[in-house]
């Protein structure tokens, strides 16, 4: 699991730099909007593609760079995140959880976009997509050109993944 070499050359960012930005952005989003403090770990060496009882929020980047920013949470943590964001107890995965995880992916995607594009007009962010279920696979996470960072909060682990490619 490493940063695409084309990306490293084009952005002049090392994998550690990019991981550092993602860690910093994730911590800021969680501390400001979710009221949770995070501990981060070293980026994963092996891909994680299968998820069990989880919720995944994703946002796509398209333009001079293409890619996917994704957040993968156990269902119980997704419920806590949504409850904190809404200021009320949420006990079932549904529209509220999908919206909350999508918005977190959107904010993280915004950070990545800003790192890659100072002006902001050459990269577009997609509307977030959220999936959840008992068992599912996310194929974009199978690629070795993907940085995946584990975080821990409230004794639960979640992942933030970033897959990037340079167009042209």
């Amino acid at each position: 699991m490493t940063l695409n070499q084309q990306i490293a050359a084009a952005t002049k960012l090392s994998e550690a730099d990019l991981a550092g930005y993602v860690i910093s952005a994730t911590k800021e989003v969680f501390e400001t909007m979710v009221m949770l403090t995070l501990e981060d770990s070293y980026p994963l060496k092996e891909p994680v593609t299968s998820f069990h009882c989880s919720v995944t929020g994703m946002v796509g980047l398209a333009g001079t760079y293409t890619g996917i920013l994704s957040i993968h949470c156990p269902r119980t943590l997704a419920l806590l995140i949504t409850s904190n964001m809404l200021g009320m107890d949420v006990e079932e995965v549904g529209e509220d959880v999908n919206d909350a995880l999508g918005e977190i992916a959107n904010m993280l995607g915004g950070y990545v976009k800003q790192i890659l594009s100072k002006g902001g007009l050459d990269i577009n962010l997609s509307i977030p997509t959220v999936i959840s279920g008992e068992d599912y696979t996310v194929s974009s996470m199978a690629d070795s050109d993907c940085v995946v960072i584990p975080f821990i909060t409230e004794n639960e682990r979640f992942l933030v993944g970033l897959k990037l490619e340079k167009e042209g």
Binding site: N106, M107, G109, G110, Y111, K113, Q114, S117, K118, G119, G120, L121, L125
Partner: peptide, 11 residues
């Protein structure tokens, strides 16, 4: 917005 790009904000 999550959009922090200078050109988008100028627009």
């Amino acid at each position: 917005t999550t959009e922090g790009g200078e050109d988008i904000l100028k627009e």
